[in-house]
């Protein structure tokens, strides 16, 4: 009987050891609205993330604030903590997350919109893909060159033969 008990006790040890993997909640303890962001994968040489919340400002958009000496290890977890929403808040926010390498070059990017309101807590999972195309949209492109017409018509004189 005692041997059986001992075997149970010994058997519980690895179970206790293996069954208690804790994933920290970045928003734990924050009383206001907060988004717990988990970046599951992305470029290998990521040293910092540049996080932008559209329409919101941040004193330190980089996390970690100090650049580490080694690349970050995925998954990356951080919290986006909001102050109280004002009347301009429309109930959702858009996050833009960019991965920076050791030279501060953007190596990956992801964007997501989250519906959130006062004091809500949300969890967001992202995967950093290739940076978005930095080309301007077509409607913002430069106007076509105002060169002379190919046929060399003199606009002042009007069409020939008129």
């Amino acid at each position: 009987m005692t041997r059986r008990w001992l075997s149970w006790a010994v058997g519980l040890l690895p179970l206790a050891w293996a069954g208690c993997i804790v994933t920290p909640d970045p928003c734990a303890g924050y009383p206001l609205a907060c988004i717990a962001v988990t970046v599951e994968s992305g470029p290998r040489d990521t040293y910092q993330l540049l996080v932008t919340v559209l329409g919101f400002s941040s004193t330190t958009p980089l996390t970690p604030r100090q650049r580490p000496t080694e690349p970050l290890v995925y998954p990356l977890r951080f919290a986006v903590r909001f102050s109280e929403f004002d009347h301009r808040h429309r109930g959702q926010v858009t996050l833009d997350v960019r991965a920076l390498d050791a030279d501060n070059e953007v190596r990956g990017q992801a964007r997501a919109t989250v519906a959130i309101d006062n004091m809500e807590k949300h969890h967001l999972r992202l995967t950093l893909g290739t940076p978005f195309d930095m080309a301007l949209p077509l409607d913002q492109a430069s106007p076509p060159d105002l060169q002379e017409p190919p046929d060399g018509t003199d606009l002042a004189q009007g069409p020939a033969g008129d």
């Binding site: 920290p24 924050y30 951080f78």
Partner: peptide, 23 residues
Amino acid sequence: AGAAGGFNRRAPGSDLDPLDVAR
């Protein structure tokens, strides 16, 4: 020890600094 979290293991990955944003 289990109740006190003695056996808890932190999930692999990097825990980064939080970002405080406001209007």
